[in-house]
């Protein structure tokens, strides 16, 4: 049994995409999402697909990782496809019929369109976390949240919280694996019975996991305080994230292209 740890799984290579500022990439992902939801034709999705393929190749991210997110939404994909394509005893002409069950040509088209849109959305957005370290992401978020600091919003603390949470995902997943193995060694079964029974089987995993998390949190607080963390202003950065000329060029050209794509196709 493996706990997935896709989120925040950064691929450490040097590429033109990696070197872009996190805010640039967030802006592009936002424009890309808007474009995906405004295109009305397959040609539009095809164009978006070309953009994503280009981005994955440029980013030198292995396809296996770039496409991994699709597995998580496979149920939604299947549901989208079937809900649109299948008809029960339709009066209209159908593509294929199995008794009362029929595949509707128009519905299949729509289903494929929506499914392709979900796939493109997942691959495109996961590219952001694959090419940006969680710290760069949270730094970017902090910068975007900074205007709200004026109204007393603790932007720095929130960014640090997010960053630490992301940092502890792999550690926690490893620990959960260990506890699951330990419980299995004592005869616990996680693959038996209905949904409720399976969910219940995880209670003896979650309790020690949470107890350990609290212990970790306490020690982490000691470690962070020992290293002079104070949550106040005046923190400097090893990699100060700043928008360079290249970022502005890529952001404005990319966003313009994506918006044009959304409007025209």
């Amino acid at each position: 049994m493996r706990i997935p740890r896709t989120f925040g799984q950064y691929v450490a290579v040097e590429s033109p995409v990696h070197s872009l500022d996190a805010k640039t990439k967030m802006g592009l992902v936002a424009a890309y999402t808007v474009a995906l939801f405004t295109v009305e034709r397959f040609a539009g999705l095809g164009a978006a697909g070309i953009v994503v393929i280009g981005a994955v190749v440029l980013a030198q991210v292995p396809w296996r990782l770039a496409l991994r997110g699709i597995k998580a939404v496979s149920v939604i994909l299947a549901f989208t496809l079937f809900a649109h394509a299948l008809r029960w005893n339709p009066a209209t002409v159908s593509l294929v019929r199995f008794g009362p069950l029929a595949v509707d040509g128009e519905g299949l088209r729509t289903g494929l369109f929506f499914a392709a849109r979900i796939v493109l959305l997942v691959v495109g957005t996961s590219l952001l976390t694959l090419t940006t370290t969680p710290v760069q992401l949270t730094d970017g978020l902090e910068r975007l949240m900074r205007p709200f600091a004026r109204f007393g919003f603790p932007a720095g603390d929130v960014a640090m919280m997010l960053s630490v949470a992301l940092r502890f995902i792999p550690t926690t997943a490893e620990e959960a694996d260990k506890i699951i193995l330990a419980q299995m060694a004592r005869g616990a079964r996680f693959d038996e019975g209905g949904l409720l029974r399976r969910a219940k089987a995880y209670v003896p995993v979650l309790i020690p996991l949470f107890v350990n998390l609290f212990r970790r949190a306490e020690e982490l607080a000691v470690a962070m305080e020992s290293r002079c963390y104070h949550g106040g202003p005046g923190r400097t950065r090893l990699d100060p994230a700043c928008m360079r000329g290249r970022d502005w060029t890529v952001l404005s050209c990319g966003a313009a292209l994506l918006v044009a794509l959304g409007v025209l196709l």
Partner: peptide, 30 residues
């Protein structure tokens, strides 16, 4: 101060970010 369990005292998501954490808090120039 270095504690017992290294997993619980590493803050950064990559090695250099973690090493920089202390001096960043002190406001050391980049």
């Amino acid at each position: 101060l270095v504690l017992q369990n290294p997993d619980n005292q590493i803050v950064g998501t990559v090695v250099e970010e973690d090493v920089a954490f202390g001096p960043e808090n002190l406001g050391v120039a980049t």
